[in-house]
């Protein structure tokens, strides 16, 4: 399981565990599962999906940081879908 938090400048929008994260990176979607190598990638604009049936957010700008199955999605603008 991944420990995921979705953070905007104003608040933490999501905190919890999911089995996967699909994030809109600057150059296309990036999928993250458990055991991912440490990574920092810039975000573009699009839909962030947590799990297969989990929550979705519209995000724009910012970055995703993955380290030891902890995923931080830090974005300038985010709203729940």
């Amino acid at each position: 399981m991944l420990t995921v938090s979705v953070i905007s400048p104003e608040a933490v929008l999501f905190e919890g565990t999911t089995e996967s994260v699909v994030a809109p990176a600057f150059d296309g979607q990036v999928g993250i599962l458990t055991g991912h190598a440490p990574m920092v990638t810039l975000l573009g604009k699009g839909e962030l999906r947590l799990g297969t049936a989990g929550q979705r957010f519209n995000v724009e700008g910012g970055f995703v940081q993955v380290v030891d199955d902890v995923v931080r999605v830090v974005t300038e603008r985010a709203s729940a879908v």
């Binding site: 440490p38 920092v40 700008g61």
Partner: peptide
């Protein structure tokens, strides 16, 4: 940690420094 960086450390900093100021 040795992160995989996309696109590059420089590009990420270029993007994040203004966010940091804001």
């Amino acid at each position: 940690r040795d992160y995989l960086l996309f696109p590059s450390a420089e590009a990420i900093l270029t993007d994040l420094l203004p966010s940091y100021v804001r």
